[in-house]
């Protein structure tokens, strides 16, 4: 078990290195030059060259990469060209926004998926089953930016229930905070509900078909107790795995929602960094997001191994 975790951590570090190298060199290949972006339409070639020197961009690529790597080892991710602020600070400021939406979206999606997934499995082929299956299908088929636009107009403008853009910090006003993230979170949860609902429903169906369910029924236990105590417990593993994975994806995938609702999160920071060729900022963001995803995936895998040791050999492919 411990050996498995250690080997996973090792290979994760390799993955991170690979990702950082790819990011670095791709950014070097693509057109656009940070010095030129700073100097704008007034620049002469000599000015650009001088600024390159001042920024250290005239050194060979591998040297630039290595010095970045050395700084990273010292936990220094450097300063963004655009903002002149340290990358760590920028991430720290943007993270709460993205995390709040992602967490709230996951809460919405999980609550909805479990409620309707279970009902749908228990009352198979009933009206509620068809209803939740329709939601399941629509959830994955509706583009989040479309539903976002619709929500802004109806809930934001017509009914004036929610602010249409911007973020209110928790310390400013808790209520304002909830209101500012409610719409984005609902929009974000839309896509997740479909996936989760599907898993909850099918694993609940599996679980209901197990022998111990018949035993429980024969013993005359109350229906509610049967479903919650036995069936649900048996049906939990798959959804938990998916929740973990989906959450990891969400953490990096909020860019569209952040764009529509003008929220100052990680996703929009990524867009800004790419547009301004802010290599330092982008490198930091990529490292941060990828390691988050890897850590969550690892945690989920370990959790599953603890719950169900049989999976171990398959996962490792040995």
């Amino acid at each position: 078990m411990l050996r498995y975790v250690i080997s996973r951590v090792k290979s994760s570090i390799v993955v991170l290195l690979v990702v950082s190298i790819i990011t670095f060199f791709v950014l070097m290949i693509i057109p656009g030059d940070p010095a030129q972006l700073i100097l704008g339409t007034e620049a002469t070639p000599e000015m650009i060259e001088d600024l390159h020197k001042a920024m250290g961009l005239d050194k060979p690529l591998y040297q630039q990469y290595l010095s970045w790597l050395v700084d990273l080892a010292k936990l220094d991710m450097g300063k963004s060209y655009v903002y002149g602020e340290s990358v760590t600070t920028l991430i720290a400021k943007a993270l709460p926004v993205t995390m709040s939406i992602a967490v709230l979206a996951m809460i919405f999606a999980t609550a909805f998926a479990f409620l309707f997934g279970m009902l749908s499995a228990i009352k198979k082929n009933s009206f509620i089953d068809y209803f939740s299956r329709s939601i399941m299908q629509l959830g994955t088929a509706i583009p989040s930016f479309w539903i976002g636009m619709v929500f802004i107009v109806y809930f934001g403008l017509r009914l004036k229930l929610f602010p249409v853009s911007g973020f209110v910090t928790m310390s400013e006003s808790f209520l304002g905070f909830l209101k500012s993230i409610a719409l984005p979170a609902i929009v974000l949860s839309f896509g997740e509900v479909g996936t989760l609902l599907r898993i909850v429903r099918s694993s609940m169906l599996d679980s209901l078909m197990q022998d111990y369910m018949d035993m429980a029924k024969i013993q005359g236990l109350r229906a509610g107790k049967i479903y919650l105590k036995y069936a649900l417990r048996g049906a939990l593993i798959a959804p938990i795995t998916i929740i973990g994975m989906q959450f990891a994806k969400l953490a990096g995938g909020t860019v569209v929602v952040e764009t529509i609702f003008a929220l100052p999160g990680i996703g929009r920071l990524v867009l800004t960094a790419v547009e301004h060729r802010d290599i330092v900022l982008l490198q930091g963001l990529v490292m941060f997001i990828t390691s988050t995803v890897i850590i969550i995936t690892l945690m989920v895998d370990v959790l599953i191994m603890i719950i169900n040791p049989r999976i171990k050999s398959v996962e490792r492919g040995e």
């Binding site: 693509i30 057109p31 656009g32 030059d33 030129q36 972006l37 704008g40 339409t41 620049a43 070639p45 650009i48 547009e275 301004h276 060729r277």
Partner: peptide
């Protein structure tokens, strides 16, 4: 950024 380097530059 591309405009500046390719077109303008």
């Amino acid at each position: 950024g591309t405009w500046l380097s390719d077109v303008y530059g």
